[in-house]
Design a protein around this nucleic acid. Sequence first.
DNA 1: CACAAGAATGATAACGGTGTCATTTCATGG
DNA 2: CCATGAAATGACACCGTTATCATTCTTGTG
Lengths: 340, 340
Amino acid sequence: MTTSRRAKPETVTIRDIAARADVSPITVSRALRGSEVVRPETREHIARIARELGYIPNFAAGMLTSKVSSMIAVIVPNMANSIFATTLQEIGEGVGEDGYQLLIGCSDYSLEREEELVRTFLSRQTDAIVLTGHLHTPATEKMLRQSRVPVVEMWSLSGAPLGVSIGVNNYDAAVTATEHLISRGRRRIAYIGGDPSGNDRAQARIQGYRDTLEKAGLDFDPALLRTGSFEFDTGAEAVSFFVEEGLDVDAIFAASDIIALGVILELNRRRIAMPEKIAVCGFDDARIAQMVQPALTTIKFPRREIGQRVAEALLAMLSGRAPPQKTCDIGYSLIVRETT
Amino acid sequence: MTTSRRAKPETVTIRDIAARADVSPITVSRALRGSEVVRPETREHIARIARELGYIPNFAAGMLTSKVSSMIAVIVPNMANSIFATTLQEIGEGVGEDGYQLLIGCSDYSLEREEELVRTFLSRQTDAIVLTGHLHTPATEKMLRQSRVPVVEMWSLSGAPLGVSIGVNNYDAAVTATEHLISRGRRRIAYIGGDPSGNDRAQARIQGYRDTLEKAGLDFDPALLRTGSFEFDTGAEAVSFFVEEGLDVDAIFAASDIIALGVILELNRRRIAMPEKIAVCGFDDARIAQMVQPALTTIKFPRREIGQRVAEALLAMLSGRAPPQKTCDIGYSLIVRETT
DNA sequence: CACAAGAATGATAACGGTGTCATTTCATGG
DNA sequence: CCATGAAATGACACCGTTATCATTCTTGTG
């Protein structure tokens, strides 16, 4: 029982390995990182000792000098929303092979919360930061500019991104959907989507919807604009609201397929015929869109691609290369099915 | 242009603040951490200067001495699965108020991958580790035991957890569901769920299903056991398989409501009556279960509660208190609706 | 065989905080 | 006016790793 000093026998450091291998700590450091300059036999020898001793490296120590954390921060409004969950999954897989870990924060659609998160992520020296959307507080933008951390903004497009922008043109997509409903002879088109405050995706979609109505000479009726969370309920409740208030509605544009599904299920329950009485257009082309009856007309975009592109751009920036492009529009298309 | 030494003017440290405030660095450290021993005026003064200089603390440096990272690692099989996404969200919210950040890893249902993740999380000195399930490689268990990091295992229950166990008794739940189907006079009961390899939740459910069949004197037919990912398609494809192979099936137990939804939609499409021809029981009581037609009979459990309990237990352990209990069964109940 | 050039390894000093214990300051009461 | 103890502040070392530059060891070559 020759405990070295105090009762803290656990932590094995590179010094312990160095002593056993009869080399200097720095050689151990190099060997464990797989440096080419260390002789292969030495490297192996050190690796074996490290294994024997159950060595666990201390990232914090390394970070302090090397300034590299191998962590990437991602801020999403909400993880439970499948669209963001999928994106996180893709990003995680994409950067994981290069040894990066995801540090995830939820902003709850609050720009102040986002600012807070950015602050702590900078403290943690994440090697890059991924944000959702282009709407940020001035303080957030200032911090990011000053820190010189690679930044990716996703899910909406911006002409002047902080770093790289990868997403969908939400405005155009909403225009396409609304025009489609109008082309089907609809005049009283409702919109159901997320709360636009602090959410540039929602803002852009609503704007596209309103502008298109106006262009077609249709009035915008505030009563037909419903917002809520991205859940089935939001769609179902909106339908109930329209019916119970006796509002005249002949089409619904739902800013998410989940919401649209709620709409469809509620219309089915109320035996309101689609598309005869009410036409429905969704957004996302989730798997469920083609399985539900009637099958949902929707705006499709390559959802997994966003995460993949983000990962690509991150790896490019982190390895010093230039990202493929400043702004990447992943595009969308209208999939017409039975609800319109 | 009096750059101090090299072209690295950016990083503001507590030393810079100390110089400006005419105090020692350690006082700055204490002040910024809100220590009571520093005079309030001094504290404020230092805080103001820190703000002026745009000081961003360096967690890594602090971690090195204090051994506290304020990070909690969570390993889930898959983030895109809404059940885990919700749990992550809850855990994040629960521990976020106390300043903890979530470091998330995806094991892809692989125990080896989990081992790897645990290793890097230990390297990063996360203050606690949350795992999904109780099935781990021996190396994983050894590392966790040695490291003395607080561990929570969630979503399944174990008599001998590594730390704290919070979840559902998957075996009992499957027994209940299967018994219910049998009580409805069904004899040819199919099971559709996740791949059981490396997944103790799936294993327990399948075991419960098989044991119950046996107890009722029913044969287990391997052809009626279908596994796949937790997506609509798995359910829909299984139904197509049963029909196309001409298999006699009068009930389906789906180990997830998403899968069950796929089953219902496919049965609807094929105009197979529920519950007359085929009874269906789901698992989860997702919102969609009561909206779909016919409404889905399912095993309900307080899904959000798991995340909340995990967060609670974590905070307790991290603040030195004992967790509420070693093993926490959040319970479940059978919700009978129209599909059985 | 001496010597240059590369290969392999090492010594030293940070990196930016914080734990520990020592010191100074200050009000209080005898 | 000084002893006393609490309040406030400071000095120093160290956390575990790595960047930087220096040193030693090989090896091939004229």
